[in-house]
Amino acid sequence: MNQSFADLSPERLRALLHQMMLIRAFEEAAEQLYLQGLIHGTMHLSVGQEASAVGACAALRPTDYILSTHRGHGHCIAKGARVDLMMAEFFGKETGYCRGRGGSMHMADVDTGNLGANGIVAGGVPMAAGVGLSIRMQQQDRVVLVFFGDGATNEGAFHESLNLAAIWNLPVIYFCENNQYAMSMAIARASKVEKLSDRACAYGIPGVTVDGNDLLAVYCATKEAVERARSGGGPTLIEAQTYRWKGHSKSDKQRYRTKEEVKAWQERDPIARLAQKMLEASLLTEADLQHLQARVDEEIAAAVAFAKASPEPDPATIFEGVYA
């Protein structure tokens, strides 16, 4: 076993590479379908951020929880969701994860521990403390990892949640995907601290910043935080430095950044980096890579076909789910 791959077996590494490729393919397909007018509303794509979603979730067990963000397709797939049911949700179909009621911004798969994406910046962060407390009070062998962006760290709710999880020693991993921009607001303009993980010291908890485009770095940092949380050591703040290649949402003209900046980050493509590393270590062949890509394309094509063929929600059920 090559030490630079931590404790991940070649099979596991290939599975994680597959997940990253699947996320990218899912989002690229979603964008195309939007442009074709087959999907309405908006979407927030995480292209370029796949290593942080997959690396973080790789350190979790199926029984662990995540709370996700508006840019959450990657988290959902990485936690084990099915792309056909996700695509159906995108199409607003009854067969989708949220029966077409949630859409891109509320994608959830409770069965795989994904308690939901969120349309509110930092919306899931206070809830994470509650999930952590719930785990503790029920004496479950679980942890909760909450994803949020750099923008969320300037919300008051962020502070309240980290402080509470810290004083109560809750099994929560606060996972910040710092993709450099909160819509158009650059993090350098929004925060005086250079590393967002430095904020952890305000709560007396460990904080760590990692290269969010390096799957292994993300995995190792998260694994350590998960072990700490699981063994009663309390919460950790992880900052994964990454970059979104696409605009904030479908309406973004991207006036706030240069093409050169985007290009520089694209050269640090997390998928290409892992693939290259595995090729060099002979854990993967070019043929394997082509095979993986073909498999991903098939899965997405099948997901789109499933979504298209699925029924719309029955308007007679419009009130369902308001109250239990």
Partner: peptide
């Protein structure tokens, strides 16, 4: 905010 958040997150699970 986190009191309401804890209630929500704990109830959810």
């Amino acid at each position: 905010a986190v009191i309401a958040g804890v209630a929500t997150g704990a109830a959810l699970t």
